[in-house]
Design a binder for these strands. Structure first.
Lengths: 166, 166
DNA sequence: AAACAAAATGATCTGAAGGTCTTTAAGTCC
DNA sequence: GGACTTAAAGACCTTCAGATCATTTTGTTT
């Protein structure tokens, strides 16, 4: 349904994983293992991310993947654009060929409204949000008895509404 | 993005076309031509619809496709179920494998809300709504000067909220 | 320079959706 | 019963996302 491609999802998880490493280069292999992703495929995705300048990749000893921008400055929409995810291309819900604002299908208004909300969510949510959520979840799992202190990050996406439509 | 498969869209258009014929059997060929769909492919889709009892198909002279239920009794969700469209299977927006209500990904709440709205729309919209919309559009195109009377059907989906979750 | 460790690259495989074509079966009409 | 008309069915084909594997670069360390 209203979903990103698997590759985009992998990219988001991987970026979140790199963000959590706080600057220390992460190997493709490490990322793949910690996120449970297929390493050779992830390698290609990371390469695409590096070509658009989201990450830096370094070969050789002490190499790996690092972020080129702050995690709070990478929105999920950025990732979708980088990988040309179909979510950014408007498409008729019913598959009507000549469906547009001018020649709207019966589902057009509804569909455009939904699309707007998804784009808004993707723009408002950053890699840092994902990383924080994952980290929180891990801490919560560790704190089985309940007296461990919680991290200070908020639950929802940080409000970042600058940037332009795709 | 939040879209049905092409086949499901084809099915909805075809059913709407059959509904507009008001009981007169429509040939696959006629439907394909009027909706601009590939006829052999449409044939397979119609066959699937007939196997689940949405339409009746009749071979030979005066044969063709007719609805087995009233157009106002066929929701888009029925069509999705008939063709097992992926829209009815919940899936994580980020592609996280073990994402569920219990083990939610950062996009889970948003995603489930969006999904609910789509399901609701699909349940509230019927083949009759699509047919009415298409007929209205055609009349509007004919009435270039503006004095032709409009049909009496409403614009939005008729409110039908019975039925159960998929 | 040599050895090694990593990502980059290209070839290839798989499965599913979408699509075409030909043959077959099931009806109707004369 | 024979000719005709129609959907059904089966065999393919194409495209693309997802995925794997082997090989080649590019870098670091000694």
């Amino acid at each position: 349904m209203a979903t990103l491609t698997q590759g985009t999802g992998y990219a988001i998880q991987a970026l979140s994983c790199v963000a959590a490493a706080a600057g220390k280069p992460q190997l493709i292999r490490e990322i793949a293992e910690s996120c449970d992703l297929p390493a050779p495929y992830l390698s290609k995705i990371v390469h695409r991310l590096s070509r658009v300048g989201l990450v830096k990749t370094q070969r050789g000893i002490n190499g790996g993947v690092t972020l080129l921008r702050e995690a709070v400055d990478i929105t999920l929409l950025d990732v979708c654009r980088a990988l040309d995810d179909p979510v950014i291309h408007p498409r008729c819900l019913l598959g009507v060929a000549e469906c547009s604002d001018a020649r709207a299908c019966p589902a057009h208004a509804f569909n455009m409204e939904q699309r707007g909300k998804i784009i808004e969510f993707l723009r408002a949510t950053t890699v840092a949000d994902i990383a924080a959520f994952e980290m929180k979840r891990r801490w919560r799992l560790l704190a089985t008895a309940g007296e461990t202190s919680e991290p200070a990050t908020s639950d929802g996406p940080s409000e970042r509404t600058e940037g332009s439509e795709p």
